[in-house]
Design a protein around this nucleic acid. Structure first.
Length: 619
RNA sequence: GGUCCCGUAGCUCAGCUGGAUAGAGCAGCUGCCUUCUAAGCAGCCGGUCGCAGGUUCGAAUCCUGCCGGGAUCACCA
């Protein structure tokens, strides 16, 4: 039985015996004792004082006496105001330690077993490389996927790739016009960056064209006719840019022609499109691999953008939707405060929302999931509210188990990332940067004697990526976060490498124990009776670990786990400095501390793995 | 304007299903490597928990109203 439940029931019995009153055990408030007081768990007696007509302090003392006398696990207690602080016996903790497993959450997650979850956590465009925002998205999604798996679900990881549209046509056109047949190989540039360069090239030429046009008579006439009062030329042409692209621009016309040809299935355009997208995927794959990100299935917009029409038409038949006078099909969501939403254009073509309806259904056909989660930035909150409502009205079987993990944007010290202003932090560059920071640090420390260069490089990758991933995952998903480039490569303090370091120390202890022939079956700590404060702190931290994994999964919040792992590592580092292991005079103490370290090491390893972070053995 | 999110130390963040004196890291200042890895440990400095009410034995946490910042309200994706 869980120790908290056990204490609650024991306290309820004590109250019955002493005061002849029945209280519901589950309602008794037991929390972890604050670390600045002595004790492991605390019963809060204030809420009982009224019903039992007794001052909280006396109540706490009476219950404490009874518990100490009747319950073997309660070793001693102290009372501060109405707080009854209970210290559990060393025997209890030793037994707990022997039975502890970092997989313990599985026992608490029977209700999840067999449930199928589809989780979507990346939706890149194919006209430019991945950036910092994608990183937060992918790391959050991958961690949540792992957490739900650990909590007993069958998880399917998917991404949706926005591989069509005007943006990729811009890259294609620029490549056609200016690249003279260059390829990623010939230019020695990673495929996604290569295609991104042609997108930038298009924008550059387009800007030049636009600026030249602004001096033309036509442009000046339009400016004179259409300007709003007080509006200067610069300001006017900034807002006019879109219209220029669609109506006047040569490059704009060519790009749009290309899009039309693509839609018509023009073989030449399709071939170019396929070739350039293949370059991009090659590049994406490399980035995913560096990050350890995987997907079970990719959904391509080019294959799904027409889906959903049938669903909408079916909904129309059942009067869930209606046809507007202009011929478009709409849903009336006024009753749930979401207004009206167009589902099919008046020309009958599909929209973003239609496509998402279709993709959701397609995934049901693919996986037959019970639940589906989208990891998408919070700017799309409304879109997903609408989408979920529509799926519910359409009676999709998983519709009551849809979740939008809405995460906040990543901001830079200079403000929001803007691709037009070149303030985007590129994912590959960032990865390269954290790894070279790890290399630099390792070189400065100079402890490379018994480590081969290959092993050293492997460690540098693990350390660098841990810094980056932990940095992005330790913040609550819902919050907008500030990305400080200096802090993200930091290897000291509240960081991934800090947690790794504690683990490496534990591995060192284990290697030595092995070398000295300890950890054998006759190796016992029965005689260890007095637990130190740090040891208790660590035991309590382990006690909470499986619950935290479940909570982090349930709340889709990996930061809960990240922060707990940091707490565990911190407690271990404290113990490292305060208590000797091998030079402990008491062999039982040595045995106990080795066991405790070992279980802690497993937890750190497993916990970081759930976050997508690998642990080195040495560093 | 409607809806939603955020406001905690100089900076970045925990804590929010109500509990004890509000915690970390970074930055600044002090100490600690002849003992299991100093990517570490210990200490100092630093807070009207945006403001004002309310509920409660008890509020950073719950409720209401303000103030400040942001997102979103397309037949774009």
């Amino acid at each position: 039985m869980d120790i908290v439940t056990l204490l609650q029931e024991a306290a309820a019995r004590a109250i019955r015996d002493k005061f002849d009153r029945e209280v519901e055990a589950a309602k008794l408030q037991i929390m972890q004792t604050r670390s600045d007081f002595e004790g492991d768990f605390t019963l809060v007696t204030f809420p009982l004082a009224g019903a039992l007509r007794m001052p909280p302090q006396r109540l706490a003392e009476e219950i404490g006496n009874q518990l100490q006398a009747e319950e073997a696990v309660v070793e001693k207690f102290n009372v501060v105001k109405g707080f009854l602080n209970l210290s559990l016996s060393a025997n209890f903790w030793k037994e707990f330690l022997m039975n502890f497993s970092p997989q313990g959450q599985k026992a608490g997650a029977e209700e999840n077993s067999g449930r199928k979850l589809v989780i979507e956590y990346c939706s890149p465009n194919t006209n430019k490389p991945l950036h910092l925002g994608h990183l937060r998205n992918m790391l959050l999604g991958a961690a949540c996927a792992n957490l739900h798996e650990a909590a007993g679900k069958k998880v399917y990881r998917v991404q949706v790739i926005n591989d069509r549209g005007i943006a990729i046509c811009k890259s294609m056109l620029a490549w056609q016009l200016f690249a003279q047949g260059a390829t990623p190989e010939s230019a020695a540039v990673k495929g996604d960056h290569f295609v991104g360069q042609w997108y930038v090239e298009f924008e550059k030429h387009f800007r030049g064209e636009y600026e030249a046009w602004q001096k033309s008579e036509e442009a000046q006439r339009l400016f004179a006719e259409r300007r709003k009062k007080e509006q200067g030329q610069q300001e006017f042409f900034k807002t006019f840019k879109n219209e220029y692209f669609n109506k006047y621009s040569q490059l704009g016309r060519q790009a749009r022609d290309m899009l039309i040809k693509w839609e018509e299935g023009d073989p030449e355009v399709r071939a170019l499109w396929a070739k350039m997208n293949a370059w991009v995927y090659e590049g994406f794959e490399q980035t995913f691999e560096k990050l350890g990100i995987t997907f079970d299935k990719n959904y391509y917009e080019s294959e799904t953008y027409r889906l959903g029409r049938e669903m909408v038409e079916k909904g129309l038949e059942h009067n869930l939707f209606y046809k507007a006078s202009d011929g478009s099909v709409q849903a009336d969501l006024e009753d749930v405060g979401l207004g009206k939403k167009v589902l099919l254009r008046s020309d009958g073509t599909t929209l973003y929302i239609t496509q998402d309806l279709g993709t959701a259904h397609l995934r049901y056909e693919d996986f037959g999931m019970d639940e589906m989660t989208y990891v998408v930035a919070d700017e799309q909150n409304r879109h997903f509210k609408v989408l979920f409502e529509l799926l519910k009205r359409l009676g999709e079987p998983y519709a009551d188990k849809l979740y939008h993990l809405s995460y906040g944007m990543v901001e830079l010290p200079e403000g929001k990332m803007k691709s037009r202003e070149g303030t985007v932090v590129d994912a590959d560059n960032l990865i390269e940067e954290v790894i070279s920071e790890a290399r630099k640090n390792a070189a400065e420390r100079g402890e490379t004697a018994d480590i081969s260069p290959e092993e050293r490089e492997d460690i540098n990758w693990k350390v660098g990526l841990a810094a980056l991933k932990f940095y992005l995952l330790k913040v609550s998903p819902a919050k907008w976060m500030m990305f400080d480039p200096r802090e993200s490569v930091d290897l000291q303090g509240q960081t991934g490498p800090y947690v790794q370091y504690a683990y490496v120390r534990i591995r060192g202890l284990q290697r030595r124990a092995e070398a000295e022939g300890l950890l054998k079956s006759d190796f016992s700590f029965d005689a260890y009776q007095k637990l130190e404060a740090v040891e208790r702190q660590l035991l309590l931290g382990l006690y909470k670990y499986p619950q935290l994994v479940l909570q982090a999964a349930r709340e889709y919040d990996p930061s809960l786990l990240a922060n707990h792992l940091y707490f565990l590592a911190k407690a271990f580092n404290k113990m490292w400095h305060e208590l000797p292991v091998f030079s402990a005079e008491d062999p039982a103490a040595r045995a106990f501390r080795l066991q405790l370290s070992s279980r802690l090491g497993q937890s750190l390893y497993e916990g970081m793995k759930l976050l997508g972070i690998a642990m080195p053995d040495k560093m």
